[in-house]
Nucleic acid binder design. Structure first.
Length: 424
RNA sequence: GGAGAGUUGGCUGAGUGGUCGAAAGCGUCGCACUCGAAAUGCGAAGUGCCGGCAACGGUACCGAGGGUUCGAAUCCCUCACUCUCCUCCA
């Protein structure tokens, strides 16, 4: 949510930010609505002031036994009150319209985010690892993994497309990956392990910006709750409506949870394989920090995600997303893309974003600086560390052998109960 | 699912339909005392919004939203959440 005061102070900068996001200028429309609301407020407040004054006088008149004066004042208040409801209604409606308008606008990019409208504008920052050279033609996981226990047909029977049924060694490998990742993030990177609700209310979904704009991407329960599309939703909302002591910051939380996505807008994309599912496991990394610390925290968080890929010896590249390709809540985002030899391309496996105070405003999460009076909004960050399902895909494709088997990366062996290779 | 009790400022916690933005305590900040600190004493201090260059004035806020009333933290209704008991249950 944007701060209306900043828009008032510098509408040109606001429109320039929107333009970088590929949006038309809106400051004029917003400020007109804002001015109209404020004019109404002033008018209403003048009426209320007179009403309050008259009410006090009524009390005094009654006390002194001046019935006539009291009745005259009551008549005046009654008259004031006939005009008031319409004005208050207008004010409510206009304010709601203004807030709806603001709630639908994405966060704006910071200065060092490159221009660009889509993924072609993203800038490669770094590359790690060398893609393996194969002495055979590497296959896509969708072609050889079913023989190893990644079963789409069984899942389709009961659940339809975009689900998988993992069996035996394959299920074990996915579980091992989740355990390995959450251990690294808690033991090495200093995140606190959390187990969170997988369903949240409207308010929470609004706070992390899945609502109101992206409701079609979520699954909803029969009693009106939302299945989390990422544990960013449940972790970040842990501090909603809180006033945190400065000494508590930074707060770093992680969770290994299933994520549920309707994939409404992605018909036809990644329909084969395990890349894009309605349900997948992910280790999420959320940080709540002081404003001055969020830039450094984004670097730290991204590094925590990179470390997992390096431990698994999976080649990747680090992308700085351009203004037009960032998620709704982000002011700056790094994507990590893992090398998939079967697809001969890099694919997103982690996305780490600094949201600034954008989510904090929606959640009303503040902190109290030591010695200072007043509260400030915190900054929030989130990132995947990593998406477990896609990491499974990366391991299958990068560690595949000519005979259709897959070697287990050394870092995972302690989690595999003696299995060193997946075999058909 | 049933019954009851609650939700008040940074925290704990009083509160009679008008004098309540709200006692008291804790914590915070300033000053005094002190070489310094502690202790003590004195004092200050809620947040949003509107108007104003400002001083300041107005308005709203006692879980959320409605209602009654000239006037609501206080009375009524709905909802959310917390706690207790019963019921059910992995």
């Amino acid at each position: 949510m944007h701060d209306i005061r900043l828009i008032r102070e510098n509408p040109q900068a606001f429109d320039a930010g929107l333009a970088r996001r590929g949006l038309a200028p809106l400051s004029e429309q917003i400020l007109a609505a804002d001015a109209s609301v404020r004019a109404l407020q002033t008018e209403i407040q003048a009426s209320l002031a007179r009403r309050n004054e008259a009410s006090k006088l009524i009390g005094q008149a009654m006390a002194s036994g001046d019935k006539d004066k009291a009745e005259a004042l009551k008549a005046e208040v009654a008259e004031l009150k006939t005009a008031l409801p319409a004005k208050e209604e207008a004010e409510r409606e206009q304010l709601a319209a203004l807030q709806d308008m603001l709630a639908a606008l994405p966060n704006l990019p910071v200065a060092d985010v490159p221009d660009g409208m889509d993924e072609d504008g993203n800038v490669e920052i770094a590359r790690w690892g060398t893609p393996r050279t194969f002495d055979f033609a590497p296959q896509e996981h969708a072609d050889f993994a079913p023989a190893l226990g990644l079963d789409f047909e069984t899942a389709a029977k009961m659940s339809g497309a975009r689900f998988a049924f993992l069996k035996g060694q394959m299920a074990r490998l996915e579980r091992a990956l989740g355990q390995f990742m959450i251990d690294r993030q808690t033991i090495d990177a200093g995140y606190t392990e959390c187990a969170t609700p997988l369903m949240v209310r409207d308010d929470a979904a609004f706070g992390t910006t899945q609502l109101p704009k992206f409701r079609d991407d979520l699954f909803q329960t029969t009693d009106g709750r939302w299945l989390i599309s990422t544990s960013e939703m449940s972790l970040t909302n842990a501090v909603r409506e809180e006033i945190l002591p400065e000494a508590d910051l930074p707060i770093r939380m992680t969770a290994l949870t299933p994520c549920f996505r309707s994939e409404a807008g992605s018909a036809g994309r990644d329909t084969r394989g395990y890349i894009r599912q309605h349900q997948f496991w992910k280790v999420e990394l959320v940080s709540i920090v002081r404003p001055e610390d969020s830039d450094a925290e984004l670097e730290r968080k991204t590094r925590a995600a990179e470390t997992i890929l390096e431990a698994l010896e999976l080649p990747y590249r680090k992308m700085l997303l351009c203004a037009g390709d960032m998620g709704f809540a982000a002011r700056k985002t790094y994507d990590l893309e893992v090398w998939l030899p079967g697809q001969n391309s890099y694919r997103e496996i982690s996305s780490c974003s600094n949201c600034g105070d954008f989510q904090a405003r929606r959640m009303n999460t503040r902190f109290r600086r030591e010695g200072a009076k007043g509260n400030e909004f915190v900054h929030t960050l989130n990132g995947s560390g990593l998406a477990v399902g896609r990491t499974l895909v990366a391991i299958l494709e990068n560690y595949q052998q000519a005979d259709g088997s897959v070697d287990i990366p050394a870092a995972l062996l302690p989690y595999m109960g003696g299995i060193t290779r997946l075999s058909p």
